[in-house]
Simulated scan of single mutants.
Amino acid sequence: MLPPLPHQIAGHWVNQRFDRDIRSHYFRGMEFAGPEGDPGWFGPDSAVWHVHSHTPALIFGLQCASYLERLDPSIFWMGMHHSRLIGKDESGHSTGRLDPAGIPVRLGHSVAFFIGTAYGNTDTAERLATTVRAMHHTIKGTRPDGLPYDADEPEWLRWNYATVVWGIATAHEIYHPRPLRGKALDRYYGEFVRVGHALGAEDLPTTKAETLDCLESYLPRLGLTHGNAMATGINLTDPIQGAVDWAIRDTMPSWAAQLVMYKPPNILERTARRTAVWTSLNGLYAAMGSTPEFEEAKARVAGGTTAVHTEPKYVLGTDPARDRQTVEAELV
């Protein structure tokens, strides 16, 4: 037997960590293998299946959504008061600092929700939505400036939904090896509305253009809190955190980029940076392979996937001409 190749060793290590830190804790009770023929909320011909099956791009998209969300001071203080991401002192009050133990908890719940609702069976998707909606009912409080916040407020729900669908779709559009674009990407925006409705949101945007309009309409309510400012841009000293932060800020709509004082570098530097992120995300995906949940879902619906799910993935470095076309297309 031949020894494993470097990417196989890396993939094995990453999948072991995913099993240990996320799947074993946050995928409990979720069903992907049965009942036979159940398409779930979306099914194998959906844009949602294609977009969410690339786990590294999905996770990056959720980070982009979270960054944009926190520009709403109310959401920032919801996180300060209620999120496991933020540490608590002995009296239970927020310390304002990230809790290393809380990071995998937040990540695990988010990844499980967006994988489970995408290609879990119908019962799994509905139970996940019910659980998250019930959790939102408990997120109510008052900001330090005296303004109340309520995660059930309809206008907030609509905007919060828009940040999530935008974040996932934007990460997919820029960094997926075979991204959906134009009407095909709008199909994703339209399908994903089902998740927003299940969480109690109404009057949701159904296209990329409508979603961008929805996000910008909230601009009068947005701002840069001290906590957010200290966690982005030149205030980050760790080079890895800085690289991830740059990639996230680089996805922001122009008005959000202005709010965080981000200006894209010249086209050569931006191309090089985006190429590095593209290679990292897709190299990680190539090493990990498809998740067991995605493979079980495909088998559950009798292999009825479309070509968009089954054609070979293009790997950067295979064809120099296509490499240039890929990177140039992302910068349009």
Rank of each mutant, 00 (worst) to 15 (best):
N282S: 03
F294C: 12
T279G: 05
N266E: 12
A272D: 12
L281W: 00
A257T: 02
R270N: 05
A257N: 03
V277A: 05
A276M: 08
A286S: 14
L268S: 11
M261A: 07
N282K: 02
L259C: 02
P253K: 14
G283D: 06
S290I: 00
A256E: 04
G283M: 06
V260D: 01
N282Q: 06
T251S: 13
P292M: 04
S280R: 09
M288L: 07
A299V: 08
K263A: 13
W278E: 02
T271V: 10
Y262D: 01
A286F: 08
T291M: 09
T251A: 15
A272P: 04
W278G: 01
A272V: 09
T275V: 14
G283C: 08
A299Y: 06
T279C: 11
L281N: 00
A297G: 03
N266G: 15
M261W: 00
A272T: 14
P253G: 10
T279S: 10
K263L: 13
T271L: 15
W278N: 01
M261E: 04
F294W: 14
L284I: 08
A257S: 09
W278P: 00
T271N: 13
E293Y: 05
R274H: 13
W255I: 15
R274Y: 06
I267W: 10
P265Q: 10
W278Q: 03
N266K: 10
A299K: 12
T275H: 10
A299W: 07
P292V: 02
I267D: 10
